[in-house]
Design a binder for these strands. Sequence first.
DNA 1: TATCAATTTAGTAATCTTTACTATTTAATA
DNA 2: TATTAAATAGTAAAGATTACTAAATTGATA
Lengths: 130, 130
Amino acid sequence: MRKTRQRQVILEELGKVNTHPTAAELCTMVRRRMPHISLGTVYRNLDILSRSGAIARIDVGGEEMRFDAAVSRHYHLRCLRCGSVEDVDLPVMGSTLEEAAAKLCQAQVCGHNLEFVGYCRNCCAREVGF
Amino acid sequence: MRKTRQRQVILEELGKVNTHPTAAELCTMVRRRMPHISLGTVYRNLDILSRSGAIARIDVGGEEMRFDAAVSRHYHLRCLRCGSVEDVDLPVMGSTLEEAAAKLCQAQVCGHNLEFVGYCRNCCAREVGF
DNA sequence: TATCAATTTAGTAATCTTTACTATTTAATA
DNA sequence: TATTAAATAGTAAAGATTACTAAATTGATA
């Protein structure tokens, strides 16, 4: 993997935030420094970087793919109103759970994703009735 | 909500399988009985039925939406090779977990989705090295 | 440093899933 | 049966992602 300026800026910008941006959001961020970067380049690099394990790809509930510079395992909360995804720093469940699932399905289990759905702090403050 | 033949056949066909078909897959199934049904009709009905709670919409990991006639809460295993989604009949975790997440995020948590990723039984049998 | 091959990029087009739109048809009800 | 609101088929549009290609860039080598 070559070290290109585009790839480096993408990594830097992703490292600055903890909002799990989508490819399009990240492209907007990167374009503040590199106005001519192509959305396709952002997608391709996010793909390459996540395949190599340098970043994490978060593919939860029915929306665009999101990306995270933090590769450590953790859980997420997805807001049903604004669509934001934030970290939930609960202890990650051990292999016992995955082994139980593997046994039940007679399958090979590599990992698990746990996503909480609800309404984020901001949206709760903005709207009553959640 | 009216009782149309299209809606009924969609429900019946979805009830026959436990494979969590996508809208396109379900459309193919329904077309064996109603060759002229429109894909848009399938989508619209799946949306209406899932909003009313008659069926479940499963939106896990970065692929098409899937649908399930079984509305009871349960977990899923997604195969990284063939993309299939099957049920994992582990006990669903109680509200303690959701309350902990809500407290951590100062948010309102309505539920959670747990998805195991790995390789399904069939793919394990077909390919070595999983 | 100059050269060179392989990778990467920008820009565009294509693909795929899903939603929107519209004229026509149909279900429910009086 | 007549009426009216909802649903349908078919098509178009939207949005996310991938594919393609000529031109540019990287990293290695002479």
